[in-house]
């Protein structure tokens, strides 16, 4: 009985998942498809796969500095942001997970409110702030601006993971004569390595996908790839093939990062709170 009742359910699950994944992948496939066509083919015939396979669109991007520097710029500020966010978030998350002190709950919520702040609200003041301190159009400006939402998130995730580490470990280490910095680096950090990985993944993700602030804070030197794409849309009369190729290339770093954290991803999305 139980078996005959189980069998069809397994199959419906597979069907549901297949349909959902097709729904997810179809638009991405279409982008990939277009990136491998010439503009004439895109605009003249409607084809499900490229008839004249061409890599010219990718060649355009990989040989033109104004294109590929966009990727380099994006990666530079994303990595900077991830490093800064983690460095400041680690001690703070430890404090929140281990100690209670004056105003801790309010402080924690206040930090989270920054994650809730609409970037649109901050675009103009950021522009003025970073222009006045001479950081406009630098990578560090974007990296610092993205800290606005990444630091609270990193604190939140790390705190969740740190809560899962028993306090007895800290106490034993102190009795054994470890100083706080040594304990933190030698013993504690390896224990929450997966949490750090997940936090880094999220910082990377939200910094990588953000456009409004990074576009507002840069003009030439640190222009992110996302902004380079929007400019092409308006200026060069819609070069669909190159646009699609640029889009496909922006998916690659994300896909690589996902592959590395795939085993922690579900727990990570629950911010360590499962």
């Amino acid at each position: 009985m139980a078996h005959s009742g189980n069998k069809p359910r397994v199959n419906t699950s597979a069907i549901v998942m297949t349909l959902y994944l097709v729904f997810l992948l179809l638009p991405i496939y279409w982008l990939l498809n277009m990136s491998l066509k010439t503009n004439e083919e895109i605009l003249s015939v409607f084809s499900i796969w490229p008839r004249n396979l061409t890599f010219a669109n990718y060649a355009t991007i990989l040989t033109d500095a104004s294109w590929y520097m966009g990727y380099v710029n994006s990666l530079i500020y994303v990595v900077m942001n991830t490093v800064i966010s983690l460095l400041v978030a680690l001690p703070a998350a430890y404090a929140f997970s281990r100690y209670s002190f004056m105003g801790d709950k309010h402080l924690f919520f206040w930090l989270l409110t920054n994650r809730m702040a609409p970037p649109a609200v901050f675009a103009l003041p950021f522009f003025q702030l970073y222009s006045s301190v001479g950081l406009f159009d630098t990578h560090i400006a974007v990296a610092l601006a993205h800290c606005l939402f990444n630091v609270p998130l990193a604190v939140w995730i790390l705190e969740g993971f740190m809560r899962g580490v028993p306090k007895e470990i800290d106490e034993t280490a102190y009795i054994d004569g470890y100083s706080f910095p040594r304990f933190f680096i030698k013993i504690f950090t390896p224990l929450i390595a997966s949490g750090i990985g997940v936090a880094a993944f999220f910082c990377f993700m939200f910094s990588w996908v953000e456009l409004l602030l990074s576009r507002t804070l840069t003009s030439v030197e640190a222009k992110p790839i996302a902004a380079a794409m929007t400019r092409t849309v308006s200026a060069s009369g819609l070069d669909w093939g190159v646009l699609a190729a640029a889009g496909v290339l922006t998916i690659v770093p994300g896909a690589l990062v996902i592959y590395f954290v795939r085993n922690y991803i579900a727990k990570g999305f629950a911010l360590g709170r499962v």
């Binding site: 959902y20 994944l21 991405i28 982008l31 993700m205 996302a226 889009g247 592959y259 795939r262 991803i265």
Partner: peptide, 25 residues
């Protein structure tokens, strides 16, 4: 694992590229 990786894919695409994908699609 495969489902997890494929499902996370849209989350890692820059938001303007998401817009571009659907604009084209």
């Amino acid at each position: 694992s495969l489902c997890l990786v494929l499902m996370s894919l849209p989350l890692l695409i820059p938001w303007n590229v998401v817009g571009t994908i659907w604009q084209i699609f």
